[in-house]
Amino acid sequence: MDTPIPERARKGRGAVSNARSTRFTALQRERTDDGWAGARTPSSAAPDTADAPADADHDGPGPQTVIGTDRSKSALSWNRSPDIPFDRSLNPYKGCEHGCVYCFARPTHAYLDLSPGLDFETWIFAKPNAPDLLRQELAKPGYKPATITLGANTDPYQPVERDLRISRGLLEVLEEARHPVCIITKGVAVTRDTDILARMAERRLVRVMVSVTTLDRELCRTLEPRAPQPARRLASVRTLVDAGVPTGVMAAPMIPALNDWELERIVEAAAAAGADAAGYVLLRLPYEIKHLMEEWLDAHAPGKKEHVLSLVRQARDGALNQSDWGVRMRGTGEYADLLARRFRLAVRRHGLSGERPELDTSQFTPPAKDPRQGSLF
């Protein structure tokens, strides 16, 4: 019988595997060794690689990032979840090159017939028309403003933003409309937009939340391989704060027996960097993420795997994920309760808020549908 070929971690990538068989596909595929894996190709015949996946050669260069175009016809995404502090969000990119293995957005790539694994971090779909679409939506009669979250799904300041600058284009529209926005990011490139953010901050129209998962450089390198190192993220907090931009830190996700012991240290570092608020989220493992996380643990922390998963189940009512509103972000049970108490004590000790202050919606002015159109006032 053929035996499955074990997957191996690739340098600079978070996911170990790239299975394109998802919950939406009827045909399931598995790489196996039929005994010919070590056979040599005759010198007179070149191997056929036309249909080989980008990550077929584990020992060669890793899969390269490909940038595609997303053809969405709207910029805003809406939700009715009572445990999320916003009902609308902007996501200029699908997929994220940061490669965070735990990312809850990974399963969305399955809707594109791509893998939530390596495909998610190597096939990035940009929305170059997002600023124009946002302008049209904000200009619609009857639109009622409320804080928009930029980066609720994937990071708006991932590496591709350096060239495409879509997030900056969205901020320009929001500034023109005097519309409040909360940014969630790991990307230090957010500081390049400090000019816009500082002006919006003067009007109480912006807040930035910087995600810091760990202060350990080595853990960061494997857990979120293409995200900026923790020290650089904390430096970006200081830069924004010094520019007058209200900035907080998200200790997310807290992974039992892996980085949860750092919760107090992250809150302390956030306060030292000038942050005024902090938050945290307990690890969630929905859909394909649970398999990706298990593979990551096998590759990078095999001795901790069973302990990590056991604690996740203790905090998730015996499962690896809870989708119920009100508990999916924090979990249930003794472990989850202890984590919540530790967080409350930490933010109190360092004088931080555990909540995001409200932004001002009263200044909203619908933007011109065409940016070339001037104003009479």
Rank of each mutant, 00 (worst) to 15 (best):
T41P: 01
R13M: 12
A52S: 12
G331E: 01
T122E: 09
V160D: 09
E264Q: 09
L76C: 03
I289T: 13
R13P: 01
T222N: 08
T69P: 04
A368F: 03
D163A: 11
A37F: 08
S74T: 14
T361V: 15
V16M: 09
R162W: 06
L282P: 04
Y280N: 03
Q363Y: 03
L90S: 08
Y157Q: 02
L215R: 08
S167H: 04
A19F: 00
A227G: 12
N91T: 15
G14R: 02
S167P: 10
M209C: 11
E97V: 03
P47D: 06
N153V: 15
A243W: 02
Y287V: 10
D59H: 14
G333T: 03
Q28R: 14
W36K: 12
D113G: 06
R88Q: 15
T185L: 11
T332D: 07
D119R: 03
L311Y: 00
A275N: 07
G274C: 08
S77I: 03
K304Q: 15
G99Q: 00
G142S: 09
R344G: 07
R31L: 15
R348F: 04
C103E: 01
T214V: 12
R20C: 11
L170D: 00
R29N: 12
E137K: 10
R203D: 14
D276V: 11
S310I: 00
G331C: 03
Q363C: 07
L114H: 02
T191C: 10
L76W: 01
G187N: 04
E262S: 01
I67R: 10
E137F: 09
